[in-house]
């Protein structure tokens, strides 16, 4: 336990001093700000680019357009940035050999993995919360106060998907050697999940639907109950990924 606390503290220091905290927060806050702004300005952009003879008519943007932008940004660029920031978390320490000293001090290998996951998910949570809060405030400022269906649930789904992706990178980087193996395997796993999502029968259980149905939840075309299966599957998969990562890491040759 004391090893876990000390090592988690070290992870936070590392995030701050290697600018991971700064990158994550900056990127996500920018997404939170940009999304409503883009939604608001899009019609003006388009009309300023109007080609002679072609008239583009667009409905006035609403707060829903802001959320569309927001979820699109986070599920695409947001997840990619998260993946890049956290993919080296385990593998870089293994390849550099910095863990040798620490492990010879008697910390358990499981504590190392759990510490790293705690710190990573904390930073993801903070960044995502910051993005969501900024987006909410800015949308309210630009489009007036609004009430949305299932906004919290929709955000929770996306948050869990992020936590799931981080656990997959941990699993992948304990499985492979070197710095990029983990990233490659994670990309492959996510690719497979995306392809599976094309089969209508699997959508219900697919973790990817947590990052695909966000707007449908807001529009009320997908109900809360429809998401429960995917939420359950993702939660179990996250725990499973971490457990397998722990088992592999315990026997990994350093």
């Amino acid at each position: 336990m004391r090893g876990y606390i000390a090592f988690t503290r070290k992870e936070f220091t590392e995030q701050i001093r290697t600018y991971k905290t700064l990158i994550m927060l900056a990127v996500f806050v920018v997404f939170g700000m940009m999304s409503p702004l883009l939604a608001k300005l899009m019609p003006e952009f388009l009309s300023s680019m109007a080609i002679e003879g072609v008239k583009i008519t667009m409905a006035d943007p609403t707060y829903l357009d802001a959320y569309t932008q927001f979820f699109k940004n986070i599920t695409q660029m947001g997840i990619i940035v998260t993946l890049l920031v956290f993919s080296g978390c385990v593998s870089s320490e293994v390849t550099k050999g910095t863990l040798i000293n620490i492990l010879s001090k008697g910390i358990s290998r499981s504590a190392v993995i759990i510490s790293k996951y705690t710190a990573s998910v904390t930073l993801w949570t903070l960044s995502f919360a910051a993005a969501a809060a900024v987006n909410y405030g800015y949308t309210a400022y630009l489009f007036g106060s609004h009430s949305t269906h299932n906004l919290l649930l929709s955000c929770l789904c996306l948050w869990l998907f992020g936590a799931f992706v981080i656990s997959v990178t941990f699993f992948a980087s304990t499985l492979t050697k070197g710095n990029y193996g983990g990233l490659l395997v994670t990309a492959a796993i996510l690719g497979v999940l995306l392809m599976l999502n094309m089969m209508p029968e699997s959508v219900r259980y697919n973790p990817v639907s947590l990052a695909a149905n966000n707007m449908a939840l807001l529009n009320n075309t997908v109900s809360t109950a429809d998401m429960m299966a995917a939420l359950g599957v993702t939660l179990v998969s996250t725990v499973l990924c971490l457990t397998v990562a722990l088992c592999i890491f315990r026997k990994k040759i350093l």
């Binding site: 050999g97 620490i102 001090k105």
Partner: peptide, 30 residues
Amino acid sequence: NRHIGYLPDIPEFYGYMSPKEYLKLCGQIT
């Protein structure tokens, strides 16, 4: 390993820490 102190052939540390901080981390872990 609690009885052992180990100095690897090329010791690797966390470059963003000062020696004091590093020893503090090691001490907390032990």
